[in-house]
Design a protein around this nucleic acid. Structure first.
Lengths: 345, 345
DNA sequence: AGCACCGCATAAAACGTTTTACACGTCAAT
DNA sequence: ATTGACGTGTAAAACGTTTTATGCGGTGCT
């Protein structure tokens, strides 16, 4: 009836008739061990089911093989998929994830989170909170004096720090250009919340496309939502009221696009005959709305993986945050479906 | 130009002119320290910005204040929200999360994951992988000999182990009963994948409601999807072909319901006049389909929180896995919208 | 033969905490 | 005056690893 004491490296060493250092060397591969000894040790390791204590390991080796994730908005499509990508890449490379969620991404209060991760001796941090308004400026001091490298996700490039992001501006540009190319002329925008960097970029892309087509932009053709379908619905009503000549609208995410489709249908507008709609994200539902929604697909999983790759290179010292390499900006792609085609169906 | 050495408890002790034990006692509150000494120590702690090393702490105290999450399907609505609930509750109670994702929930290969968490000395594990077919039986041995408590999420209750779940059977029952009460008589089912426990339960609820209404069940009125909108669309076509008298359908999740709506509309069926539809989940989009989707809402965030509460009680030894307490089964609620009402709009 | 070197193994010293065992003074009860 | 208990503080022993410093037999080179 003995309490099940976990088996330690000492138990293994004793049983295998070698020193602890030898066992350690077999397990970590830090120094060569003769084939005979290694076999002998491995046998005992299997036999006893030895599982090295990472706390002890991290304590002395000063590397916990752990990365901290600071995230928010996991209930949304992009962030949750990105997290999946992060986890995949990390686990493939032998890193563990310790997860901290922030409920209000515009918060100034990140010290406790950062401290929490640091006390866990993470080797690096992935900062996956959207850049909103001045939040990054607030965090500057807290993040700058961190003893470990940080990779920013979904942030503006920043001198001296490493970020990976989707090219949202290009995405917005593609959406608007596509509508123009299909003969739509009065293109409204249902933008994301004003302070969000990603929302700004998508808007900028839309603006650029319109400018390049030689069309001036009227404030009437722009409404702002908060990413929810509800807000998309409302924004669409507002737009139609004050900009009745609108014949197409680009919504900065699919949920708002779905809200807008609902609103259009309430106004007895046919899509795309009377009004074309393009979204952003390519959520699974987007292919099954009526009509099917044209949208901009982001490589969200790839984004997560890339952030881990970059972080690991920082950790290994192969790279400085300064040399924000090429490839830190992933390209979205346009998925053309029924909601934006003049000749649809 | 010295390398920034992290400040240790020794530095604090020296500077505050007390012993390390005293600093430790101030910080942990494990033993009383006079107000004067405490103040003096705290001052130095602030001044030096001391952040205790959790690895060292966990090593000796044998409690890492960390819980392991084994999850999958984070790209879906329920699981990602549940994770949010888990994180909230855990962080409020001072626990950290270490996250492991499994890509194939029906996998037999969980030993590596379990080992991984154990080496991190987690205090407990939340097993948030859906029960599919016999996977739980496979895991039995791996999980049983774990040195830490485990809480199962979304699993059948199991003697000797603790689980928390949504009452999926009740959810299915509510959906079908609602349709019956609204005068629909030939109610089809688009079930989830056969092996999923949750899918089985939702189906069972649907069956029960039909039986109680005195209606026999014909195999023609049942189709199976894989949770995707695509599969919901396909299942609906199949159902209509072989069960043309169908006047209502219950889909085991909202994504399939959305696929079904799309299919219905392709067949020029009006919803709900010709065919009523009820979903399951209450995803944000559900309120903005045309017509708006009646669905069953699950308290997913609450489920996550509850699982952490239960786990912490297990860890504290206040509870045995045996006494699967009341309240381990959360009740869903029916959200009635337009897609299921005879008199809609 | 002497010397340097290499390959392998080990003992002992970290790593940064908490916990244990003990010490010292004060105070209350005998 | 003795005893016991209590409140506060400390030194030293854990905790389970990796890393460092050493040792030791054999091999190749002068």
């Amino acid at each position: 009836m003995s309490i099940k004491q976990p088996v330690t490296i000492n138990d293994v060493a004793r049983r295998a008739q070698v020193s602890v250092s030898t066992v350690s060397n077999v397990l970590t591969g830090n120094r060569p061990v003769s084939a005979k000894t290694r076999a002998q040790v491995m046998l005992v390791v299997e036999e006893l089911g030895f599982r090295p204590n990472r706390l002890a390991r991290g304590l002395v080796s000063r590397s916990s093989k752990t990365i901290g994730i600071v995230a928010s908005g996991l209930e949304y499509f992009g962030p949750s998929r990105t997290l999946v990508g992060i986890e995949q890449e990390a686990s493939e490379r032998g890193y563990s994830l310790i997860l901290s969620l922030i409920h209000e991404p515009a918060t100034e209060e990140v010290e406790p989170i950062v401290n929490h991760l640091i006390t866990h001796q993470v080797d690096g941090i992935i900062w996956a909170i959207p850049q909103i308004g001045q939040n990054r400026v607030w965090w500057k001091s807290a993040v700058e004096r961190l003893p470990v490298p940080v990779v920013f996700l979904n942030h503006a490039m920043w001198p001296g720090s490493l970020g990976v992001d989707i090219d949202n501006c290009q995405g917005g540009f593609m959406a608007a250009s596509h509508l123009l190319a299909n003969g739509f002329v009065n293109i409204g925008l249902i933008a994301g919340p004003g302070q969000w960097y990603a929302a700004e970029m998508r808007k900028k892309g839309w603006e650029t496309a319109l400018h390049e087509a030689g069309r001036a932009i009227d404030p009437r053709q722009l409404a702002e939502g908060d990413w929810t379908p509800q807000s998309g619905e409302q924004a669409f009503f507002d737009l139609m009221r004050r900009y009745p000549e609108m014949d197409a609208v680009f919504a900065a995410n699919d949920q708002m696009a779905i809200g807008a489709m609902r609103a259009a249908s309430d106004l007895n507008l046919r899509i795309p005959e009377d009004i074309a709609i393009v979204g952003f994200d390519d959520v699974p539902e987007a292919a099954f709305t009526r009509p099917r929604l044209t949208t901009v697909r982001q490589p969200v999983v790839g984004l997560g993986r890339l952030s881990v790759k970059a972080l690991i290179r920082l950790i290994a010292g192969e790279m400085e945050p300064g040399d924000a390499g090429v490839g830190a900006m992933l390209q979205p792609s346009l998925i053309v479906r029924e909601s934006s085609q003049r000749v649809a169906r």
